[in-house]
């Protein structure tokens, strides 16, 4: 029997909700990459490992709080630990800027040199994370698991299929909205934010009008550290924390930033959702959705899965290549905040 409602529920449960959460995480990560590109004008390869580092600090702080009996149940303790993570990551990132990038700014090095320096920073961050917390998977999510469980949903609606919304997914969406709103308010409404946009638009003109470049750089690193820690923590809460996965997030995040137009924050958000929705829908087995939509006798035998989940890199990569070939500046025009 054709049953559109149930098909929609299955689709929402396995594609829409996870892709929305994953997309928000990617968008926050891509925002960090795009802001660095807009202000400092290089592709920061260390961003994935910065996320891993920030999340690690949050995890350590969470464990400490859990031991001390601090809890904001049903919300995960990690949210409470987030400010600590952001602060520590900001300090570390600022120290790296001092020790590494500032010199290259002063000598006006080519962007490629910055990228290489960021490779060095990537190695060190990666090493630090493995050194401190180890390369293994860590769990730090506590509090309630679900906002709505599949069974409750079935009860409420009387439908055959259930839809579960994990608490981590809800938190991801709400946090992402708040963070993005705050970021845009800062960039568009405050004096400092406006000076940063001016700097990104035209560096020389901004310098002439008395904007202090080091202050702009300082603030952008703090923002990036915050974005990276939040994105990393949300991803860790939603899926799991493993340093190497964070390194691998580099590709989808870059793809998101480039698809949206490097340097364009709005683009990074759009790009994050483009990547996540394509990744999830290309690797999802649509068998059950199709079964609800077509008459019984047409029901598919196979999984109706375009690509196996392991090829999810191929998805971000293909989108990246297509965009670069046909619209090199990204969906939105890149290059400035």
């Amino acid at each position: 029997m054709v049953d559109i409602l149930n098909a929609l529920v299955v689709l929402a449960n396995f594609v829409l909700v996870p892709a929305l959460a994953y997309g928000s995480q990617l968008a926050l990560g891509a925002l960090g990459i795009t802001l660095i590109y807009g202000i400092l004008r290089f592709s920061n390869f260390a961003h994935g490992d910065t996320m891993a580092f920030g999340t690690m600090i949050v995890i350590l702080a969470t464990w400490w709080m859990q031991k001390a009996g601090v809890s904001i149940a049903p919300l995960p303790t990690a949210l409470l630990a987030l400010p600590i993570g952001i602060a520590v990551t900001a300090i570390v990132v600022l120290l790296t800027d001092r020790a590494v990038y500032r010199f290259y700014r002063k000598v006006k090095a080519a962007p490629i040199i910055f990228v290489m320096a960021s490779l060095g920073v990537m190695f060190i961050m990666n090493g630090l994370v493995r050194f401190i917390i180890g390369p293994k998977e860590q769990t730090f999510a506590d509090g309630a698991r679900f906002i709505i469980t599949a069974r409750d949903f079935k009860h409420m609606t009387g439908l055959h299929e259930g839809m579960a919304i994990k608490l981590s997914q809800g938190i991801t969406l709400i946090t992402a909205v708040i963070v993005v709103a705050a970021l845009f308010w800062f960039l568009n409404r405050t004096r400092t934010g406006k000076s940063m946009r001016a700097f990104s638009d035209n560096e020389d003109l901004a310098l002439l009008s008395g904007i202090n470049p080091e202050r702009v750089v300082l603030i952008i690193w703090i923002i990036v550290a915050a974005l990276a820690t939040i994105a990393g923590t949300l991803y860790g809460l939603d899926k799991s924390y493993k340093p190497f996965t964070y390194f691998q997030l580099l590709l989808p995040m870059f793809a998101a930033a480039i698809v949206g137009g490097l340097g364009n924050p709005l683009g990074a958000i759009a790009g994050g959702f483009v990547i996540s929705f394509s990744e999830v829908s290309v690797t999802y087995a649509f068998k059950r959705v199709v079964t609800y939509l077509v008459p019984d006798s047409w029901a598919p035998d196979g999984l109706v899965q375009l690509l196996s989940t392991d090829y999810k890199f191929a998805v971000s990569f293909s989108i990246l290549i297509l965009v670069l070939l046909f619209r090199p500046t990204g969906i939105f025009k890149g290059q400035s905040l």
Binding site: I113, L119, F123, I124, G127
Partner: peptide
């Protein structure tokens, strides 16, 4: 954790040489 020293060292060498 001594095994993870290598990544740290490589990063440090790269940055110093650069």
């Amino acid at each position: 954790s001594a095994a993870h020293m290598r990544l740290l060292t490589m990063g440090l060498i790269l940055l110093l040489v650069l």
